[in-house]
């Protein structure tokens, strides 16, 4: 397959209606590869996730991007770090579940969200440590309550 589009391909610069061909492609895509109906709906439902009360803890470290791969290591846990102001949330995702810690260490009530539905609840102990026995089935976020503060981690695909 010749992938070098900068190559001179022997065509003269005769104008043709590129817009027309693009429009045909657009119609073909609408028939052969449309947005699946459930995903179309999801874009609407996602608004329920807009949370005015919570601060967003942004992803500041992702082992997938920021760490060198370990040669030969098979099932390496995904390490994520989120940060909102002074608070840091470290999360490790494996095939078996989630493990994490809130820093500075403090107890927290944590909800694991996996879409615009109520999630499952966890508790972080006095040292801020928490675990979940099952890995998130898809994209997830953690909603943490500590004292009067509510923080939600950025949505991630585990």
């Amino acid at each position: 397959m010749n992938d070098d589009v900068f190559d001179e391909d022997g065509w003269d610069d005769e104008e043709f209606d590129a817009g027309l061909l693009e429009e045909e492609l657009r119609q073909a895509a609408a028939v052969l590869d449309p947005v699946p109906a459930e995903l179309q709906q999801l874009a609407v439902d996602a608004y329920a996730l807009h949370d005015l009360d919570a601060r967003v803890a942004e992803l500041t470290f992702d082992s997938l991007v920021d760490a060198l791969p370990v040669r030969g290591a098979g099932d390496v846990p995904r390490m994520l770090t989120f940060r909102a102001g002074e608070m840091t949330v470290d999360v490790e995702v494996t095939g078996h579940g989630l493990m994490g810690q809130v820093l500075p260490p403090q107890p927290a009530r944590i909800e694991v969200l996996w879409g615009p539905r109520p999630g499952s609840s966890l508790t972080a102990d006095d040292l801020g440590r928490f675990t979940a026995d099952a890995p998130p089935p898809g994209p997830f976020a953690l909603r943490l309550r500590t004292g009067g503060d509510v923080v939600v981690t950025e949505w991630m695909r585990a």
Binding site: A46, Y47, L49, H50, G138, A141, E154, W155
Partner: peptide, 29 residues
């Protein structure tokens, strides 16, 4: 959807990436 399809992901991955993008969008609205 086009962006996801342009990257030739499997259906399952395509769905998850699409969801992640919209969930995060709602979060950052």
């Amino acid at each position: 959807w086009s962006v996801v399809r342009a990257h030739r992901l499997s259906d399952a991955d395509a769905h998850e990436v699409y969801q992640t993008a919209w969930f995060r969008f709602a979060q950052h609205l």
